[in-house]
Design a protein around this nucleic acid. Structure first.
Length: 873
RNA sequence: GGGGGGUUAGCUCAGCUGGUUCAGAGCAUCUGCCUUACAAGCAGAGGGUCACUGGUUCGAACCCAGUACUCCCCACCA
């Protein structure tokens, strides 16, 4: 069959993806007669567009799922998207703002309509992009975390946990995002080292000319001060007991309080206490019954309560107040310091600790099984190094603030009657009944996104399982759950992975997945995280355009050891592209063979025997890598098997000779063996490069409609005795030596050389036909006598002679042989030292000693042979 | 501040129970080849004080202690 000279990835990708969809190869349905293999996708944000992290993640998932499918599992990969409340709401707010619409001018329902419109329009983009990558998800199962029944499950969980007493509402210090105007969880705060000014401010002591100096990085909160605190043992301040202090600017009278929380060493040993704006101060305030003055508005401006600078932005105020204090002579000094300041992950604005009414989930009890089952290995983290981090986090876990001051998300099912009564229930009618009041209002807030996505592995299969209980779960959930592997980024180990485990144990009594494969972070060559803002991330779809999806998939995985960050560089994709090109060319060669009634050559016969061995050996190695989730190693082993073993050695060995400028025909046995090897290889490559393998699969033979490589059976090793493969390595070295000799002497590969071997040493001639073919020697003659004036070398204990008479320079040969003898003598000496060491002989394992003895004997024999050769010169 | 990694060839990384001719792989580099599958290629070659210092051991890239540099996670020190 005529095939194109170059493979066209774009054409093949579109064609085969569509074909796979048409034939429903991605579809999975519960089937008790087959073992399930399940992955649920970490749902990307609906606002998301494909980035390099997704590429890596989803390629790994696709490799795992495709291989499982070929191994005969009922492979099910469930896709979907996450509503991502903060990110999406921010996006929609911005979009409306661009149109001149303010969120505050809209009702909740109006805003949500805009949000849903946006979601319908753009929410599916990322899933479409995944298809370009070749992701073999069961698209019929696509879910969205805010679908009605998934949302209902979230509400059910809230109500259930509330009824169990695990959820409470309270005033707490939360991380307030003044730009997003919402509380965010501890995990959404990123602490960054920041250069700050530590301002030493003098506070006047009431009824005295004395001052007490406090150090602060946040002078704009001075108006919220309600005490000054010192250590009870601090000699410097003992005399202030019972005194009052005047807060600068506002001249409020506040007490001096004593608490051993104070660090005597830091600053001046005196702390201004601002209960509304610092968690420690808040705790001190509670302990010492201090009033709370909230000096800031939700959007980060100075509040009415502050009494000065009202309406000014917090950072502008910081500058102004320092200036004003300096003018009043109240600034003792200013130090430049580095401290950690919290920033919002979503909006990147400085987080403000703020007191507010929020809903919390108690974590101590519910998180226990999630910790235990990782420690006991029931759920495996890959790589294991994350177990320590995980343990540390789970043992020090704080209550989870689950409310968000947003509209996009699942609204908290709490109802208030305005008289201080609260009920938690699903509908307004119930609330009216329970509160015995017509005038009930639902909580304005929605739940944290992770409070819905922690149910993902359950609700994608059966959203009603929460309500109905595990015993009444549907067939899907019972069949597919617990899932097998979760592939995700270590950044969300706590955000999401830990919480899925919590929810899993709480609501199904089982783990949600058995293995958690944590990918690395994709970085650029300088080690910077790839991000849109830095502009250092290549556009994934452009990469696919350039190198083909197969090339990009391979490129991603070539540089991604498990759990390590990967320094991505486009050249890896180039390597990936070269790989599919190589495979295409190998196919082209085989495709061009002319089969005829000719005799099989000895080289062909032995090559077939050898490759069967090699293929089996490497297949076991590859399977082993997979079982340990060593993805890039499995890929590299595949790469070398194809490129080196198959193309460079096997195909070169069985390739027919040329005569009259035309390739000779090939016999049927060799052809069939070669095609079947190629088929096995294509299968092994398929998870990595699904498109090119499917294309070749169909060009190679006439196939029935459903005979696709995507559902072909994963090959099995034919033998488990790999001696042949080991023996051929010796012959490979012989071949390389001859080729090296040619290179040095400038002898063309086309020129036949005469190679002889010493008969008495000769034990293993099985692969001599391959040596003859690949080193282009005449048939290797076994001789009884050593040959003088030849290029002599030892390979596998046999002495070989390249008889090229005139080309041998005696002096050069002497130098070469002397060098080799020296090397072997040195080696022999090290072995002898080892063996003459009594302690070694006494302590080492017997096998090891035997091995060393053999090394000794071999080296001695080698030296003897080389010396004999030298003496003939 | 607490915890966890990492440091092996120019680059990205393997090296599993301390012992095989153990110092490896891929890429990059150099040399020679447009040999009718493939120059996105073929053949060959070079390249490392295993971060540093000490210890344990008959034997250390591997185990232990310390040092340096780096990355990540957690944390309420003004």
């Amino acid at each position: 069959m005529e095939v194109p000279k170059i493979y066209n990835p774009k054409e093949a990708e579109d064609k085969w993806y569509k074909y796979w969809l048409d034939k429903k190869f991605f579809r999975s349905q519960a089937d008790r007669s087959k073992k399930p293999y399940t992955i649920v996708i970490p749902p990307p944000n609906v606002t998301g567009v494909l980035h390099m992290g997704h590429m890596l993640n989803n390629t790994i998932q696709d490799v795992l799922i495709r291989r499982a499918r070929m191994l005969g599992y009922n492979a099910c990969w469930v896709p979907g998207t996450d509503h991502a409340s903060i990110a999406t709401e921010a996006k929609v707010v911005k979009l409306l703002a661009d149109k001149g619409i303010k969120k505050s001018d809209l009702s909740r329902d109006e805003f949500l309509k805009h949000a849903w419109d946006w979601k319908e329009k753009y929410g599916g983009i990322i899933l479409e992009q995944l298809k370009k990558l070749g992701a073999s998800c069961d698209w019929d199962r696509t879910r969205f975390t805010m679908e009605a029944d998934l949302s209902e499950a979230v509400i059910d969980v809230f109500i259930d946990l509330y009824n169990k007493g695990e959820i409470y509402r309270g005033v707490r210090m939360v991380n307030w995002d003044p730009q997003g105007l919402t509380a965010v969880s501890d995990e959404e705060v990123i602490h960054k080292e920041t250069n700050s000014k530590l301002v030493f401010v003098k506070y006047k002591i009431e009824g005295s000319n004395e001052f007490i100096t406090v150090a602060t990085t946040r002078p704009e909160t001075i108006m919220g001060d309600t005490a000054v605190c010192v250590h009870p043992n601090d000699e410097r301040y003992k005399h202030l007991k019972g005194k009052n202090i005047l807060v600068p600017i506002v001249n409020r009278v506040v007490p001096v309080i004593y608490d051993d929380y104070i660090d005597l060493e830091f600053g001046t040993g005196a702390l201004k206490v601002t209960p509304a704006h610092d968690i420690n101060d808040y705790n001190l305030g509670i302990k010492h019954k201090l009033p709370v003055i909230d000096a800031l508005t939700p959007d980060g401006k100075i509040s009415e309560a502050a009494g000065a600078y009202v309406g000014m932005d917090r950072f502008a105020c910081r500058k102004q107040i320092i200036k004003d204090l300096q003018e009043q002579g109240l600034v003792e000094k200013i130090e430049e310091i580095k401290n950690k300041v919290g920033y919002s992950e979503r909006t990147d604005s400085v987080i403000e600790p703020k007191l507010s009414m929020q809903w919390f989930l108690k974590m101590d009890k519910v998180s226990k099984p999630a910790l235990e089952n990782v420690l006991n290995g029931e759920v495996k983290l890959i790589p294991e190094k994350f177990i320590n981090t995980y343990k540390h986090w789970m043992e020090n876990v704080h209550d989870w603030c689950i409310s968000r001051q947003l509209w996009w998300g699942q609204r908290i099912p709490a109802w208030y009657d305005g008289k201080g009564n609260t009920v938690v229930c699903k509908t307004k009618q119930e609330a009216i009944k329970l509160l015995k009041s017509e005038d009930v209002k639902q909580d304005e807030d929605v739940l944290d996104t992770w409070f819905s996505s922690w149910l993902w592995p359950i609700t994608v299969f059966d959203p009603k399982a929460i309500k109905n209980g595990w015993e009444n779960a549907n067939e899907d959930l019972k069949y597919y759950y617990p899932t097998n592997d979760l592939v995700t980024a270590p950044e969300i180990l706590f955000f999401w992975v830990a919480r899925m485990m919590i929810a899993g144990y709480e609501y199904t009594g089982q783990k949600p997945f058995s293995n958690v494969y944590l990918t690395g972070i994709v970085r650029d060559k300088q080690g910077r995280k790839m991000s849109k803002s830095l502009g250092n991330s290549p556009e994934p779809l452009e990469l696919i355009e350039k190198y083909g999806a197969d090339g990009v998939r391979v490129g991603m995985l070539l540089c991604s050891p498990a759990g390590n960050d990967l320094m991505f560089d486009e050249s890896y994709c180039e390597q990936g592209r070269n790989f599919w090109n190589k495979i295409w060319n190998a196919f082209k060669l085989i495709n061009g063979f002319e089969v005829a009634e000719v005799k099989q050559t000895a080289a062909q016969k032995t090559a077939i025997i050898w490759f069967e061995n090699k293929l089996s050996e490497q297949l076991e190695i590859i399977n082993d890598h997979y079982s340990k989730y060593r993805m890039s190693e499995a890929l590299m082993a595949t790469y070398k098997l194809v490129w080196d073993d198959f193309c460079a050695w096997y195909l070169e060995a069985i390739k027919p000779d040329f005569a009259d400028g035309k390739a000779l025909p090939i016999d049927k046995a060799t052809y069939d063996a070669t095609v079947s090897y190629l088929e096995s290889l294509l299968k092994i490559i398929h998870p990595w490069m699904p498109f090119v393998t499917e294309e070749i699969w169909h060009l190679l033979k006439d196939r029935t409609e459903k005979d696709c490589i995507i559902v072909a059976e994963w090959p099995k090793p034919i033998t488990n005795n790999f001696n042949l493969s080991k023996f051929f390595e010796i012959d490979q070295r012989t071949i390389t030596t001859v080729r090296n000799f040619r290179q040095q002497k400038g002898i063309s590969p086309k020129e036949k050389l005469e190679l002889k071997a010493l008969k008495e040493q000769n034990h293993y001639t099985t692969f001599y036909p391959l040596v003859e073919k690949l080193a282009n020697t005449g048939s290797i003659e076994l001789v009884n006598e050593k040959i003088e004036n030849a290029y002599t070398f030892l390979s596998g204990g046999t002495e070989f002679y390249l008889v090229t008479g005139s080309l041998i320079n005696k002096e050069d040969e002497k130098i070469r042989l002397t060098k080799e003898i020296d090397y072997n003598k040195g080696f022999l000496k090290s072995v002898q030292i080892k063996l003459s060491n009594e302690k070694f002989v006494a302590n080492a394992k017997p096998e090891l000693i035997a091995l060393e003895r053999k090394k000794q004997a071999d080296a001695e024999a080698k030296i003897k042979a080389l010396e004999a050769q030298l003496s003939t010169l």
